[in-house]
């Protein structure tokens, strides 16, 4: 019996000791940021998300699509109908075929998805040295620790260490898997001119665009958080009530009463 116990302990300790072994090429652990949307009561920071929309529009959107995002969704980060229409109208999307059967384009409307910067994957690769810029609609959910990861990646560009062999056309970024990434450093101080006057530092822009992308990846987050509190409170009260009810009902059983002995 003791032997079994000892084997158990030895095995458990042994396996635990080995846990840290395989984190070699997975990329540096992301910086941990205190986001407004994390935690049970987390909400989107609308001002930040609006700035993030500006960063996405002016910087990211030249290479990265946002195909699950509709212009009408901008209402959720605080834009009015007229603003949304104006944003949409800046872009063109395919329209109906005309009377001669030829394809047409029309200005985008709130119902439309954000148009992809490239017509197809091959075109995207051709314009980006063979690399495919991923669609960003779900990027914050499609990576481990997504929000922190995207932020770290955006601010994590650095000079490659002397002993690091950087591929042609690649950039050193320790947060990316394998530490080299085809995307050149996208955010430079002052890359956008914030409408609200916030200084456009690299960290600020990265934070804002992550805030915006979090909204795009998980539009239901605020609703989910708010409903969750109500559901949990309800369930807690119900459970307490059921517990009391159970104790009352079970009292005669605990007292040893025989229910079939009439």
């Amino acid at each position: 019996m003791k032997l079994v116990k000892n084997i158990a302990i030895a095995l458990t300790l042994g396996t635990v000791a080995l846990t840290g072994a395989n984190a070699a090429d997975a990329g540096k652990h992301p910086l941990q940021i205190d986001w407004s949307f994390s935690g049970p009561l987390g909400k989107f920071d609308q001002a930040s998300a609006q700035r993030g929309w500006q960063v996405y529009k002016q910087v990211c959107s030249s290479c990265h699509g946002l195909k699950y995002f509709r212009f009408r969704n901008l209402a959720d980060i605080g834009y009015g109908e007229d603003m949304i229409k104006a944003f949409a109208a800046e872009y063109e999307v395919p329209g109906d075929v005309d009377d001669f059967g030829d394809p047409t384009v029309r200005p985008a409307e709130p119902k439309d998805a954000f148009p992809s910067p490239f017509p197809n994957e091959n075109a995207a690769r051709a314009s980006n040295g063979g690399a495919l810029p991923p669609d960003l609609s779900l990027i914050n959910k499609a990576r481990h620790d997504g929000a922190n990861y995207v932020y770290s990646l955006l601010v994590g560009y650095d000079d490659a260490p002397a002993d690091f062999e950087l591929g042609a056309g690649m950039n050193y970024n320790p947060y990316f898997k394998g530490s080299q990434i085809a995307m050149a450093e996208p955010l430079f101080e002052g890359a956008v001119d914030y409408e609200d006057g916030t200084p456009a530092t690299q960290e600020q822009m990265a934070k804002d665009v992550v805030q915006f992308l979090m909204y795009v990846a998980e539009p239901s987050l605020e609703k989910r958080h708010q409903m969750g509190i109500k559901v949990l409170i309800f369930l807690a009260l119900l459970t307490i009530l059921l517990y009391i009810s159970m104790k009352v009902i079970w009292k005669p059983v605990k007292e040893g009463k025989n229910f079939y002995d009439e």
């Binding site: 309800f234 009260l237 119900l238 009530l241 059921l242 009391i244 009810s245 009352v248 009902i249 005669p252 009463k257 229910f259 079939y260």
Partner: peptide, 26 residues
């Protein structure tokens, strides 16, 4: 059997309220 238990003891209404409350809430 359950009803018998109830009537044998005191505080019948208060106790019933708990069951009814729990049932209604559920």
């Amino acid at each position: 059997t359950l009803e018998n238990t109830h009537h044998e003891e005191d505080g019948v209404t208060r106790r019933d309220m708990i069951h009814v409350g729990a049932g209604v809430m559920a």
